[in-house]
């Protein structure tokens, strides 16, 4: 392909074509300007800041790699939040995907009430994170929360203390996050499912394929571009978990639910370590970037774009 382009340079675009190109850029401009000013510039500024020490008031001091060295060798809280966040991602990403796919498969049938359930599953996505967190706080209450009341009725004599124990607080947040995240992924999966041509299933059925076969041989492969997109988006958003931890547990007890982004916030706005906070933010960025690269690199083994 590349060679072909070299030997046949593209012809000079016609006047009409050129005008279209300029119009295209014209339409892009507002968004591009926004992106440059509010995304790219701050991201680059943060990179520069991560090599400095700045408390917002005293002059900025260049400190080279010191922030990164401290991050990797001398911040026990960072190790803790890194572990919490990784655990959180490893558990919630698969659950958010598998459960969303299951829900989407069920709601893709032509059954009565699917509209209602689609709306119901999507509700958490459009609900205020604060309200959601407050309601769940109550659900998790060790003595009076509905969750433990149910467990108690089922015969669990000593149900977990959920948010007030170092062992259960993070799993509790994971439950909320999964509940919250299913709706969005479900909608994407539904769109993907509806894009699979019906003839494929008809042909398969004529050849004697069971529902199970259809799922593995048609649905999953045909859905793989959607699954890939969902995987990338879900992974990124899981790494950025913050609001639930802030509202429900304030990162506690004993840092059990402290996360990377919460650690960034505290360093920047409570301890006035802008440079250090920027270094953690860049660390997180690089981790997410590498993971996303890996996902793109290996997608060709399982993602099928051709019909």
């Amino acid at each position: 392909m590349a060679r072909a382009e070299q030997s046949y340079p593209p012809p000079r675009p016609s006047a009409v074509r050129r005008r279209e190109i300029w119009a295209g850029y014209g339409f892009l401009t507002p968004n591009l300007i926004g992106f440059l000013i509010f995304t790219l510039l701050p991201v680059l500024a943060a990179l520069a800041l991560s090599f400095t020490e700045w408390d917002l008031i005293r002059p900025i001091q260049w400190v080279g790699l010191r922030n990164y060295i401290r991050l990797l060798t001398n911040d026990p809280t960072f190790i803790k939040v890194l572990r919490n966040t990784t655990f959180f991602v490893l558990v919630t990403v698969p659950l958010r995907m598998v459960l969303a796919l299951l829900v989407a498969l069920v709601l893709n049938q032509n059954l009565r009430g699917t509209m209602f359930f689609r709306t119901a599953f999507f509700m958490p996505v459009v609900s205020s994170a604060v309200a959601v967190a407050l309601v769940w706080q109550w659900i998790f209450h060790a003595d009076f929360g509905p969750l433990n009341s149910i467990l108690w009725m089922l015969g669990v004599s000593n149900p977990p203390n959920w948010l007030t124990s170092t062992k259960w607080a993070l799993p509790a947040l994971m439950i909320v996050s999964v509940w919250q995240g299913i709706g969005f992924n479900m909608v994407i999966f539904l769109a993907g499912l509806q894009g699979i041509p019906e003839q494929l299933y008809e042909a398969a059925r004529i050849d004697g394929a069971t529902g199970w076969h259809c799922f593995w041989k048609i649905t999953l492969p045909m859905l793989s571009p959607t699954t890939f997109f969902v995987l990338v988006i879900t992974t990124i958003s899981s790494f950025q978990v913050f609001d639930l931890a802030v509202i429900m547990t304030e990162g506690g007890p004993a840092n059990a639910t402290n996360t990377i982004v919460y650690h960034i916030y505290r360093n920047a706005f409570q301890f006035f370590r802008m440079g250090y906070a920027a270094a953690i933010a860049w660390f997180l960025f690089v981790v997410i970037f590498i993971l996303t690269l890996i996902q793109f690199r290996y997608q060709k083994n399982w993602v099928h774009y051709d019909l």
Partner: peptide
């Protein structure tokens, strides 16, 4: 925030 309170948390939740 990073040292004293997380440790005290463990005392106050009884762990």
């Amino acid at each position: 925030t990073t040292v004293v309170n997380p440790a005290l948390d463990l005392l106050f939740i009884g762990e």
